[in-house]
């Protein structure tokens, strides 16, 4: 503990003495990496350098600078996490940020090399300490990077799901749901949730589910389909399935799926006619 205290004390004192040099070196490097691509402007880079050094000094002067659960360490970690998000959202690369952090570490080590009063034992302890801190900071940057990527992928998936299963009220009380592609568990849940809420909201009495865009079906998908039909029926609406291709029909029979309680029609047009018939709606050409 005494060794640790000594390490951080030497580091803090040296840093305070040379804060101007360090700040200008990392600011210059910041401009070289982020300034050219307009990811961060000059003021942002300058603010970033000052805040980083302030947070680092706060950590070094804290009660236990080795404690990675301390508020000071957490503040430093969160600072890099937020910076990482900001740069990634502006189209920056995580590699550049990691290289920048490595440069900061190198700048601090070079600063210590100029202090001739530091012995080999102390220098070794300081290097280990710095490497521990900077490794954690790089991990924080990668965690933010992965979070951001996951969020982007999730948003894209959500958008794709919404556009691939549009629920349309084609007539008062009649909803159509064209299903394109594969119905996996997560997609079924999303479609089902959206469909049931629409039935409740629009008081839809008939739902036409068109499978023309479904290329193949397995036992899991057919199970999901039956679940969807049951849920629609529980809501008090008629579920009409249309566009079952011959190969889908063959697969359903070989999977022993009973469509006895389900209204099926060959085409979407036939399905709509059936929905209209059930609702007592007659559509005719003007005489």
């Amino acid at each position: 503990m005494a060794q640790q205290g000594n390490t951080s004390q030497i580091l803090a004192e040296t840093l305070k003495l040379q804060i101007g040099n360090i700040s200008s070196a990392i600011e210059k490097q910041g401009h070289a990496i982020f300034g050219g691509s307009n990811l961060l402007d000059s003021d942002e880079i300058a603010d970033f350098c000052i805040e980083f050094l302030e947070l680092l000094v706060a950590l070094l002067e804290s009660k236990d600078p080795e404690d990675d659960a301390s508020p000071q360490f957490h503040a430093l970690e969160m600072y890099f996490n937020n910076l990482s998000r900001q740069i990634l959202m502006r189209g920056g690369r995580v590699e550049d940020l990691v290289r920048y952090i490595q440069f900061m570490q190198r700048a601090l080590i070079e600063m210590l090399a100029e202090n001739k009063e530091i012995g080999i034992k102390e220098a070794r302890a300081i290097l280990l300490y710095l490497s521990g801190i900077f490794n954690e900071l790089i991990l924080a940057v990668f965690a933010a990077y992965l979070d951001e990527k996951e969020r982007t992928i999730y948003a894209q998936e959500k958008e794709l799901r919404e556009t691939s299963t549009p629920i349309t009220e084609i007539w008062d009380g009649v909803l159509t749901l064209p299903i394109i592609g594969t119905l996996d568990s997560s997609r079924t849940m999303i479609v089902m949730e959206a469909l049931l809420n629409r039935i409740a909201r629009d008081r839809a009495e008939a739902v036409v589910m068109d499978l023309t865009g479904v290329k193949n079906i397995d036992s899991q998908v057919s199970h999901h389909l039956i679940q969807m039909v049951r849920a629609v029926q529980l809501m008090g609406s008629d579920a009409i399935i249309t566009g079952i291709r011959p190969e889908i029909a063959r697969a359903l029979t070989s999977l022993n799926i009973d469509l006895g309680n389900v209204i099926t029609r060959a085409t979407l047009s036939d399905g709509l006619k059936e929905a209209f018939r059930r609702l007592g709606i007659q559509v005719s050409a003007r005489a």
Partner: peptide, 16 residues
Amino acid sequence: CINFQPTAAFALAHHM
């Protein structure tokens, strides 16, 4: 049965 809630229909359809 009337006024089935979407959440109820959703959950029930899974274990019917």
